[in-house]
Computed example of a mutant assay.
Amino acid sequence: MNILHAHVSGRVQGVYFRGWTRSQAQRLGLSGWVRNLRDGQVEVLAQGDETALRELEKLLWKGPSFSRVDDVAVSTVPDEGPTLEGFHIAPTV
């Protein structure tokens, strides 16, 4: 299973970014989660088809209409854990 781990910065909190990301990920058939970070970023962890993950990465650069994305920092995550079920909004950390 392929994994995308991203930190999105800019005006990404208080603009429905998490809900929008969940909708996009579900539409693409991905599993994982999205959450706000206390430093103002949004963190995304998604599992699924490589093509769908690349599409989600492109979409994260756009965001919902009221957001402003300044950066999407993607890091490599080893695929050592269990397969995630569904895509949900996780609590802020």
Rank of each mutant, 00 (worst) to 15 (best):
N36M: 10
I3S: 00
S31K: 04
Y16V: 03
L45Y: 15
G86V: 09
L84Q: 12
T76N: 09
E80W: 00
I3L: 10
H7D: 04
R22L: 12
K62R: 15
R11W: 07
V77G: 03
P91S: 12
L37M: 12
G32W: 11
H7E: 12
T51W: 01
G29N: 08
T92W: 05
A73C: 02
Y16E: 07
I89H: 06
W61F: 00
E43S: 03
L30E: 04
V72L: 03
G10R: 11
I3K: 02
R11Q: 14
Q26E: 15
L30M: 09
G48N: 00
K58E: 15
L53H: 09
L59S: 12
A73D: 14
L53V: 05
F17E: 09
V72I: 02
T76C: 03
G19E: 14
V69A: 13
H88F: 09
D79P: 00
R35N: 07
G10S: 12
N2F: 05
R38A: 15
F66T: 11
P82Q: 12
S67W: 03
E85P: 00
S9W: 11
V72N: 00
A52G: 01
R68L: 11
V42W: 05
D71M: 08
D70M: 07
Q47E: 02
M1Q: 06
R18Q: 00
A90I: 05
I89A: 06
